[in-house]
């Protein structure tokens, strides 16, 4: 039984919005989706005219849609921004090569400049090599840390003022849940902020913060946008998987739950006397860090010394030894060497 779009009431509805449940036609959906992102950008004052903005492009649906919508809004509303695609090559053969091809196609389709930074050139290690040393249990820690820094370094090379990433509402809700379950109060506070980044680092923002993942897929599908949709071949983090499953069940019960969780996260208030880590800089590479050595340097040191567990778990005392280039004792070396696949 054909029903009419609830917004324009003239065209036939072709989809039901996961976010609100309204049945709408294609054009009204595009308009609503884009307008919501525009509202997010404007109300949070994410950009200033004349800024150079790097878009973290992985070739996946989030970054593809982000790039497309930013381009559209930039022109429609005269944001006055200079947009660049920044992509990270982790060196995962078979997976990353394909997604990079997608990014290159995006570059041509959207007519935006593209810069690719690779783990190989930045750190001297590809993910394939890392997994060989580290195994499959903690590889995601390495990748996450390295990728974050890689994006920053790539952006710095380009003289970019801001980076935006394709994190969507589902990601943020999932992160709120995960940080809550793990008791990570510091992250819990920051994770709903739309712009993150402290002194010295390039600010990052998430224009898709209030966009549902399902709607992003719908948008990409109807707009026939090109994206690469396979999961990373190295298995996803076990704990995040739990939070994700819970979120999906919640969404099935009540679609607004995703926004409700974000609302909860935004309104959490941490007691003043709770200890928070202080942000300083890494003594080796200058990146922001709350310890003497930033996480990436610690992980790299571990890799280079053949101690893959360095940086996984808490060995802060050993950081000093590393900085001072002192040799580690037998027992310490043994602890850091053991890996479980």
């Amino acid at each position: 039984m054909p029903i009419n779009c609830s917004s324009c009431e003239t065209q036939r509805a072709v989809l039901r919005r996961p976010k609100t449940g309204h049945s709408v036609c294609k054009e009204c959906f595009f308009r609503a989706f884009e307008e919501e992102i525009h509202h997010t950008i404007v109300s949070a004052q994410l950009f200033q005219p004349g800024e150079k903005v790097g878009i973290g492009a992985s070739g996946g649906k989030d970054s593809t849609v982000l790039a497309h919508v930013l381009k559209v809004l930039n022109e429609r509303y005269n944001y006055g921004l200079e947009l660049i695609l920044v992509s990270v090559d982790e060196g995962i053969s078979g997976y990353r090569d394909d997604s990079l091809e997608t990014v290159k196609r995006n570059q041509q389709q959207y007519e935006l400049p593209l810069k690719i930074v690779s783990y190989q050139e930045l750190y001297g290690w590809t993910m394939d090599q890392i997994v060989k040393q580290v195994g499959l249990k903690n590889n995601c820690t390495f990748c996450g840390v390295f990728r974050r820094q890689a994006l920053d370094r790539g952006a710095m090379m380009l003289g970019v003022n801001k980076i935006c990433t394709g994190h969507n509402a589902d990601d943020i809700a999932e992160t709120v849940l995960m940080n809550f379950l793990r008791g990570d109060i510091a992250r819990l506070r920051r994770c709903t902020a739309i712009t993150t980044g402290s002194e010295g680092a390039i600010p990052r923002c998430k224009p898709l913060k209030y966009a549902y993942e399902k709607e992003i897929v719908l948008y990409a599908y109807f707009k026939k946008l090109d994206y690469f949709s396979t999961e990373c071949i190295y298995s996803p983090n076990a704990y995040r998987g739990h939070a994700r499953a819970f979120l999906k069940d919640l969404e099935a019960l009540r679609p607004s739950a995703i926004m409700d969780i974000i609302h909860s996260g935004e309104n959490l208030s941490v007691k003043e006397d709770v200890k928070m880590p202080v942000q300083g800089t890494c003594t080796r590479c200058g990146y922001i860090s709350s310890q003497g050595l930033c996480k990436a340097c610690v992980l790299l040191e571990g890799l280079n010394r053949g101690l893959p567990k360095l940086g996984i778990g808490k060995h802060h005392k050993l950081h000093h030894k590393l900085l001072a280039q002192e040799p580690l004792s037998e027992a310490e070396t043994r602890k850091l060497k053991s890996i479980d696949f």
């Binding site: 609830s6 917004s7 324009c8 009431e9 919005r17 976010k19 609100t20 309204h22 709408v24 009204c28 308009r31 609503a32 307008e35 919501e36 509202h39 997010t40 109300s43 949070a44 004052q45 739309i194 209030y210 607004s256 926004m259 409700d260 974000i262 609302h263 935004e266 309104n267």
Partner: peptide, 19 residues
């Protein structure tokens, strides 16, 4: 909450999806 919040975003979505 101010305009840059989940609450406002949901209201905006409602408005945009209705006549």
């Amino acid at each position: 909450t101010g305009p840059a919040s989940a609450f406002f975003a949901t209201q905006k979505s409602q408005q945009l999806s209705e006549k």
